[in-house]
């Protein structure tokens, strides 16, 4: 049964693969589709569909989550605009989640460092590193852009690469030392991961302000590392009871 007293909707349009999830802390329903560049045309229709098949209405939603990026600038603006519209129109809180945090989240059970990334156009990716320190997962504050084939450069210990890659690049990276490359279904951003991170934040009382929340825009330079982007400190916790020890 859906617990409509705690029903959260998560929206992700960071990349051309868009996603939506409904989550109440226990029950989850997800929708993920290839939106290409037409997120504006497809997002609300898909939301309407997801609500209908689960027999809930928009007015039953209690919180909205949206990915902050990095990702496609226009894609992020679509999700943010719909997320803010829902939050304002329904009078419910909005929670922003860094896209890379959601990508890294499922891999925190494996205890290896994680490098999460999203495509940044022209064969480049934006990534951040995650480390387990004193029992706590911590994301470094700097987002870097590199060419996709340089994604594993500079790794000093075995690291999980989390994010979508072309088949050819995936094959090349897989063979490199210190690289742990999960199968595609574990690297494609699942909207449920966004929902779960957001649910934890929302339940802990953290919500964002509609007049200040905006996407994280990471620019491509001609150099391989763009100016660092400072992010608010964010920690993700290993899913309790789901540990590979």
């Amino acid at each position: 049964m859906v617990d409509v007293d705690r029903l959260l909707l998560a929206i992700d349009t960071s990349t051309e693969q868009a996603g939506l999830a409904l989550y109440d802390g226990a029950w989850l329903s997800e929708l993920s589709w290839s939106a290409g560049r037409s997120q504006t045309a497809s997002l609300l229709g898909q939301l309407d569909h997801l609500l209908r098949v689960n027999r809930v209405t928009a007015r039953q939603l209690k919180a909205i989550a949206v990915t902050l990026g990095p990702g496609s600038f226009n894609g992020l603006r679509v999700g943010m605009s719909v997320g803010k519209g829902l939050s304002y129109g329904l009078g419910i809180p909005l929670v922003g989640i860094v896209t890379l945090d959601a990508l890294a989240y499922p891999h925190t059970v494996r205890r290896h460092p994680i490098r999460a990334f999203v495509p940044a156009g022209r064969g480049r990716v934006v990534y951040a590193d995650y480390h387990l320190r004193s029992g706590q997962w911590v994301r470094e504050s700097v987002l870097r852009t590199v060419r996709g084939d340089q994604l594993a450069d500079g790794l000093t210990e075995t690291t999980v690469l989390a994010g979508m890659l072309g088949a050819e690049l995936a094959e090349r990276l897989k063979g490199q030392p210190k690289v742990l490359l999960p199968p595609p279904s574990w690297r494609l951003l699942r909207p449920g991961w966004v929902a779960e991170l957001a649910f934890q934040r929302w339940q802990s009382g953290a919500v964002d302000r509609l007049e200040t929340l905006e996407p994280i825009y990471v620019h491509l330079g001609t150099t391989e590392v763009v100016a660092p982007v400072e992010l608010p400190e964010s920690r993700t916790r290993a899913v309790s009871g789901y540990d590979e020890r």
Binding site: L44, D48, A58, V82, L86
Partner: peptide, 13 residues
């Protein structure tokens, strides 16, 4: 797209 998405969402809810 900012205006269009917000407008569509408000019309929807």
């Amino acid at each position: 797209l900012v205006g269009v998405n917000v407008a569509k969402t408000l019309a929807y809810v």
